[in-house]
Design a binder for these strands. Structure first.
Lengths: 235, 235
DNA sequence: TAAACATTTTTTCTCGAGATTTTTTTGTAC
DNA sequence: GTACAAAAAAATCTCGAGAAAAAATGTTTA
């Protein structure tokens, strides 16, 4: 886990070196993708076989997930997958729009040329994977990773560590809901065009337009999630 | 640890039942009060004697502190007390004002009579402890606890779980800096009057005034911290 | 002297087994 | 059939010892 980044979710860059980190990453993926259902119990005795680690190590992995608010822990009563709900996603979206609009404005104000080119590069990589996604050559995981990288690159020049820390948590939470939409019929939407316009406004240092586009982009996903059947969030 | 509250810091209400929670609470206190210096290493082998628990249990306590961003962890390199700096506190203050102003406005919009009376009661308890504090009958810990309870009571009706979650983290971080001011000569300030005016505006449902007073209240502490000698944050 | 390497010491990480607590099941009375 | 109590089962929590890694120390060489 890196020290400069406050967030445990920022482990990835350095390949995981401990078994606990490894189990953490696997568990996180399985929770975000819904393999472990929201609200369900996470029994250490059962999971240690699945993830091939000892009980103590698995507990550490679960404790790391508490930092991401993907798992809740209750003394003497074990661990649970954090529940999801439409209310929760509305709250996530609201807080995210507030923080992300501010973070983007700050990033635009502080960003240099390196920041600019990193954003362009991230957009390019995202575009490429989108093409392959349409052809079925590549999985959603890969798109999700590059989508995150793109959004992250836009905010990279924001000097507020705490804003970025909270946003990384909220972004990851949002991913749970984005995955929910995958199989379902969705409203027509051109995500690529949204990203493209967002990048353009950002590069032109038009903070107001960029923030507005970003907020709209985030809220659009909420609209889509709202259309899901009511039983999509648990059962 | 409670489940409805997302934040590990919300353990207190239920008296700690596991040794790990107990060690967590003690460690947290010792970090917030500066007994373990910012940036210093937290060696498990050494601490387990101090807190009278096994290595695994102590690691769990430290992992819980990572959730509060009071401790950082780095794979294969152990735990450290999260560092502090003026820059960090400026960031904390900025994000706090944004979130707290919004949370208070929401709380005022949603609060009922029970919420009102709880706020009045919390203010009363804070006032009482202030009297005894001046007489030296009671320690700063007690004042700090009731100060937190008062501020928490104001926001209690805010329906945004995530805003409250992040604020509870930021509030706890702020406490580290407030403790720094304790011994030092400080600018003249009537905290009681600030609280009083804040409560009044809140009870009158004047969201605009209340938020303004709250932001001012929070920023005032930043001014005080700014006056500290430069070597106050580490060394 | 400074850098490169090998050795020792310290610290972190990991596991499995036992103690404690919670949950479930079973049994009994009303 | 319901309510309550006791026993059994399951799960969590805790510890100490050993394996793996990092840091510190000492030695050699240019």
């Amino acid at each position: 886990m890196s020290q400069d980044s406050l967030h445990a979710a920022a482990i990835e860059p350095n390949s995981p070196k401990t078994l606990a980190e490894n189990a953490y990453l696997q568990l996180r993926h399985d929770i975000v993708t819904g393999k472990h259902r929201p609200g369900s119990k996470l029994r250490v005795e059962h999971l240690k076989k699945q993830y091939q680690v000892g009980a103590g190590t698995l507990r550490e992995a679960l404790l790391l997930l508490v930092t991401d608010a993907l798992v809740t822990v209750q003394g003497q009563r074990g661990f649970r997958v954090a529940p999801i709900s439409l209310d929760d996603f509305q709250d996530i979206t609201r807080v995210r729009t507030v923080l992300e609009a501010e973070a983007l404005a700050l990033s635009i104000a502080h960003g240099d040329e390196v920041w600019e080119s990193n954003a362009v590069a991230a957009f390019h990589r995202l575009t490429r994977v989108e093409e392959r996604l349409h052809q079925g050559d590549v999985g959603f995981d890969e798109w999700e990773a590059r989508n995150r990288a793109f959004h992250s690159s836009l905010l990279a020049a924001c000097p507020s560590r705490w804003t970025l820390h909270f946003l990384s948590i909220l972004y990851q939470q949002s991913e749970r809901y984005r995955r929910l939409v995958l199989g379902n019929p969705t409203v027509p939407r051109d995500v690529h065009a949204e990203h493209s316009a967002l990048l353009e406004a950002t590069l032109q240092r038009d903070a107001k337009t960029a923030s507005r586009l970003l907020v709209h982009h985030i809220e659009k996903t909420l609209e889509v999630v709202r259309l899901l059947p009511a039983d999509s969030f648990g059962e």
